[in-house]
Amino acid sequence: MTLTPASAPTAPFDATSMAETRWRTRDILVAAVIGVAFGVVFWAWGLAWGLFAPLNAARDLLYAVWLVPAVLAPLVIRKPGAALFAEMVAAGVSALLGSAWGVDTLLSGFVQGAAAELIFAFTLYRLWGFPILALAAIASAAAAWVHDWVLYYPDVALDVQVIRGLAMAISAVVIVAAGSLALARSLRRAGVLEGFPD
């Protein structure tokens, strides 16, 4: 058994290039940890959600907090499946910590993550500008809107549903798309995204 750095020079091995779609362990953990951090945010947000009740439909302007990991994680990792994975982790964590939506949190996480994932898949995971992020965020909000309609607001008047939907879309663009871009930029400036694509 010998530890031998050989003296003979060999061709430089360049590890600067990155495999395209295979998830490194680091990718998995970073996406998971974004999911976990937002799972905790979800949990706190869920407890506060009841307090926002007096805001009525305007409350849905804050709805998109539930959708951030579905855009932030893929923006950082840029791997297929990141939106779905991070959103499901976040949902699972908030369900385990205790959520007013119980097991349904998982279902919500699935539809919200899958909708955003679909948009990123259509771009073949190549476009990461604001318009695509906004589109993914709106898709995710739309999925959440349909889900909530069926399960929680089945008999609510149509005009209120439409207002809710608009509020959710606005909040998706502002909180999720713009927010994720700003967060990713801050993280990059802090130097913790070294080794992830810009």
Partner: peptide, 10 residues
């Protein structure tokens, strides 16, 4: 890998 990765993060 994803399941245990998520667990470790949890």
């Amino acid at each position: 890998r994803f399941a245990y990765g998520a667990l470790a993060a949890y």
